[in-house]
Nucleic acid binder design. Structure first.
Lengths: 155, 155
DNA sequence: CTCCATGCAAACTTTTTGCAGCACC
DNA sequence: GGTGCTGCAAAAAGTTTGCATGGAG
């Protein structure tokens, strides 16, 4: 049982789970790492590395931005934290300006247009509280294309 | 009627529509702009600015990368072309590593966790051909949060 | 002819990396 | 005490911007 086990925890329990998860992944429990995670856990706004840096610096004034980047990277790699959206290095363009969705192959990186929006629109609207106005939706599917197959891509 | 009018066109028709769309948006029909669009239209791989640059340079060896960036930016702004995923300047992190979805407010930029995945999984799988293996899905909803309201954000 | 778009270069932002010293295990 | 982590600095990658020239309308 790891950190992915439950939906809502109190902070202390989640810190305990974090410690366990770090140990399981061979990550040392440094002061910086603990504070970075604590700050991310307390944040409700999906902060950027820079935002985490600014906040953690209030507790550890000597921390450096590259440590924040490195730590967030390690934790993401171990699936202890997540990242909003895909981690695309550069912007990708397409001539089709109509709203549609994408399938991205984890093997070869191929991006394929798909049209899932219509299928989901009703369900999607129900996913947020009524007070929210949903204007558009974009679905990003990930998996393997026929060429890469189930085990084709290394991962 | 603009470029958004039909689903499948042949290249010449789409170029015609592109010319019309440019005129409607007050964009001049420069050699570079035409070739950039032609290349993006011919591409099936959702290329990056750099990729477009490399390809267009085969026809226009003197074109510069910043022109490609500027052109793609203009065309996107006029909704003549699209961009894969959100145009996020920096990576955003979250302590929740479980698969879930996001609602992003176009007014204030707030990112809110939502859980639409379960609702859509079956429909999503049907959105791609059978030979494709879907391993994960991420839905990005956009609209307005209660604070920003329908007309709260400018857009 | 006027003004937008281009090309060049340089700046800027975000993220990554090399290296020496320090801290965790 | 060994190894990974940190901090510093510098570099890399992606993108944007100022300015003078050139081409579209």
């Amino acid at each position: 049982m790891n950190i992915n086990g439950a939906a809502v925890w109190d902070m202390d329990d989640r810190m305990d789970a974090f410690v366990t998860a770090c140990k399981q992944n061979g990550l040392r429990l440094t002061h910086q790492r603990l504070e970075i995670y604590r700050e991310l856990m307390a944040a409700k706004d999906h902060p950027s590395a820079e935002m985490v840096y600014t906040r953690v610096r209030m507790r550890i004034p000597t921390i450096s931005l590259d440590t924040v980047y490195r730590t967030l990277g390690s934790l993401e790699e171990c699936n202890i934290i997540g990242r909003v959206g895909a981690s695309t290095s550069s912007a990708r363009f397409e001539s089709n300006p109509l709203p549609h969705d994408h399938f991205i192959c984890d093997g070869c990186g191929e991006i394929r247009d798909v049209f899932a929006s219509e299928l989901n629109r009703e369900a999607l609207a129900r996913a947020v509280p009524e007070e929210y106005v949903v204007r558009s939706s974009h679905v990003e599917l990930r998996g393997f294309c026929p060429a890469c197959g189930q085990g084709g891509g290394r991962d």
